[in-house]
Design a protein around this nucleic acid. Structure first.
Length: 570
DNA sequence: GCCGTTTTCGGCCCGACTGTTTTCAGTCG
């Protein structure tokens, strides 16, 4: 074992004191540890060289602490520390390392908000949950948010939504620089993968040497660290964002775009179709031409994952993918009735102005106390307001929905008589996220079988780069939705994208419709449906099978039919 | 838990800073 410095020993005491504070241990006991850490860190001579009998002579170190020092020197840790660590979720310990929050604030976040990882905390910041807590405010929330985002990005992965705007901005800047004849995104960002490690770009230029010196100096790359490997530039931004720019030529541009976009498996599958080096010798005018030479229709970038897209293309059975413009309404949105930022009317008007036919308002149900879930009285109040707005904004239509918590036993959150007052119900899990797969699946199956359930909300509860979803048997859940005519939500929040796109194919096989829901807590949240469409396309979703690509009339008919079923079953 | 004596228990490291307060609590180095 490496020799422990005074610094290391002090750190063990500091860490222990922090955990003691988190667990509300004796204030003065932990202060003595803090004090010991302070004294030790300022000590000139290394404790490891000191006879243990002399430890107690140091001011601030008594009998107990000198024994602790001895233990640290021989084992590298402390019994107390280990005990506290066992009693604390690792994510909570990690939260204490976030700059700006210490044990007191972490304790509030953990105990009052139920937040157990930095990722969940980031999500809570985005949902504006912290500002209401005592001792917290907007500035603290912003500061925490920034600190966590930085931490996450330093791990090397980014949410698609975090990099896409920058990617587009760089492509535009490169185009406008006049240095290149053609510029495009490639790789995972062009395939619209939900998580990205970098922004990949191809830029075509006739004379490579001309741009070599100029590219790093472009204004948009101010503050970037630049490395050049052959014809590839690797630029690292101040926030840790990595941008790879591959220099191509006008002649090879589409070929390079093609090779760089599909993942390795996709390219391998296509190489098998290649006859006598047809790709090597030919110059192409477009990517579509490349596929055509291979005897295939154009394969959309989102599909180039090396699954069965090449077989489908060979059989001419590629799906016609859903487009963002196909969406006709937005279901599952929040207002100030629960934890949204805008009033019902503001949400409705904004939705209408974006060109949608309808809005499904789904505030939280009563069990979601943290989100100001609706009591039965407030539901009545909200419904009156919706009716008034429906007259005012016609033909725009607001559907009365609720995001009903799925309770631990799988039941919904209101009695049937109350559930019956809604046009539709999104049933979601928000608590008890640590069930076994068997229990979590059983819970969902019960909720799906409930005749009032219209849409199953964010099926696994995952938060990308932040929290694993609870484990579920996807096939069993999708089968149940097929059996009971329940629509599955593709929650389009860029942290969720849940149902995972890899399961959409199975849902489609079972004839289960998918609703691309923004879960908007803010007017700007409607845009998230775009990210939902990105991954929905990866999952081969079509317009026909997209629930909110239906017109207001069709959706209304579906809701009515579904409600009739609930009466028959009863 | 440790210290320092008013020798047996009461008070405890510190100054700056920030953000949330309305007189202070929490964090940092």
């Amino acid at each position: 074992m490496e020799e422990l410095s005074n610094r290391d020993i002090a750190d063990v005491f500091t860490e222990t004191a922090k955990l003691m504070e988190l667990h509300n241990a004796n204030e003065f006991k932990l202060k003595s540890l803090q004090n010991a850490a302070f004294v030790i860190s300022r000590l000139e001579s290394p404790l490891i060289k000191m006879p243990s009998s002399e430890l107690e002579l140091i001011k601030g170190i008594g009998k107990s602490i000198s024994q602790k020092i001895t233990q640290i020197l021989s084992t590298g840790t402390l019994d107390e520390l280990e005990t506290f660590l066992k009693e604390t979720p690792t994510g909570v310990v990690e939260m204490m390392r976030i700059k700006g929050i210490g044990p007191k604030k972490v304790s509030v976040l953990w105990k009052q908000l139920g937040v157990e990882t930095p990722g969940e905390l980031l999500y809570a910041c985005n949902e504006n949950r912290l500002v209401e807590l005592k001792g917290f405010g907007t500035k603290t929330q912003d500061q925490i948010k920034k600190a966590i985002e930085y931490k996450l990005s330093s791990k090397g992965y980014f949410h698609y939504a975090a990099l896409e705007p920058l990617g587009e901005e760089i492509v535009t800047a490169l185009n406008q620089s006049g240095l290149f004849s053609n510029v495009t995104l490639t790789g995972a960002i062009r395939r619209k993968c939900e998580l990205l490690q970098q922004i990949e770009i191809i830029a075509a230029v006739q004379n490579r040497n001309e741009v070599m010196n100029e590219l790093p100096g472009l204004k948009i790359f101010g503050g970037y660290e630049v490395k050049q490997i052959d014809s590839m530039f690797v630029l690292t931004g101040p926030e840790g964002v990595v941008v790879n720019i591959l220099l191509s030529t006008p002649q090879n541009f589409f070929k390079d775009q093609f090779y760089q976009t599909g993942n390795t498996a996709h390219i391998e599958l296509l190489r098998k179709l290649e006859t006598s080096g047809s790709l090597e010798t030919t110059q192409f005018e477009s990517e579509a031409q490349i596929y055509s030479v291979l005897g295939l229709p154009f394969i959309e970038p989102e599909l180039r994952e090396g699954l069965d897209e090449v077989d489908l293309a060979l059989a001419n059975k590629l799906p016609e993918l859903i487009r963002f413009e196909d969406l006709k309404g937005s279901l599952h949105n929040h207002s100030t009735y629960s934890d949204g930022m805008h009033s019902l009317k503001e949400m409705a008007v904004a939705c209408r102005d974006l060109g949608y036919e309808y809005l499904g308002i789904c505030d939280h149900s009563k069990s979601a106390f943290y989100a100001n879930g609706l009591s039965e009285e407030r539901i009545i109040q909200q419904h009156l307001e919706i009716e008034k707005l429906n007259t005012e904004l016609a033909p725009f239509r607001i559907f009365k929905g609720i995001e009903s918590d799925i309770l631990h036993n799988g039941n919904l959150d209101y009695p049937d008589a109350v559930l019956n007052q809604f046009d539709f119900i999104v049933a979601s899990v928000h608590s008890g996220l640590k069930m076994t797969e068997e229990k979590a699946t059983e819970r969902l199956l019960t909720a799906i079988a409930n005749p009032f359930t219209t849409i199953l909300g964010h099926p696994t509860g995952r938060l990308l780069l932040a929290r694993e979803g609870y484990p579920i048997n996807h096939k069993a859940v999708i089968d149940a939705c097929a059996e009971h005519g329940v629509v599955i939500e593709l929650n389009a929040h860029p942290y969720r994208l849940d149902l995972d796109w890899r399961w959409i194919r199975y849902a489609l096989q079972k004839n289960v419709m998918i609703s691309v829901n923004p879960d908007a807590h803010h007017i700007s949240g409607y845009h998230d449906m775009y990210f939902g469409v990105c991954v929905a396309r990866k999952g081969h979703l079509t317009k026909k099978m997209t629930f909110n690509a239906l017109s207001a009339t069709e959706v209304e008919e579906w809701f009515l039919k579904r409600k009739q079923v609930s009466h028959i079953v009863k």
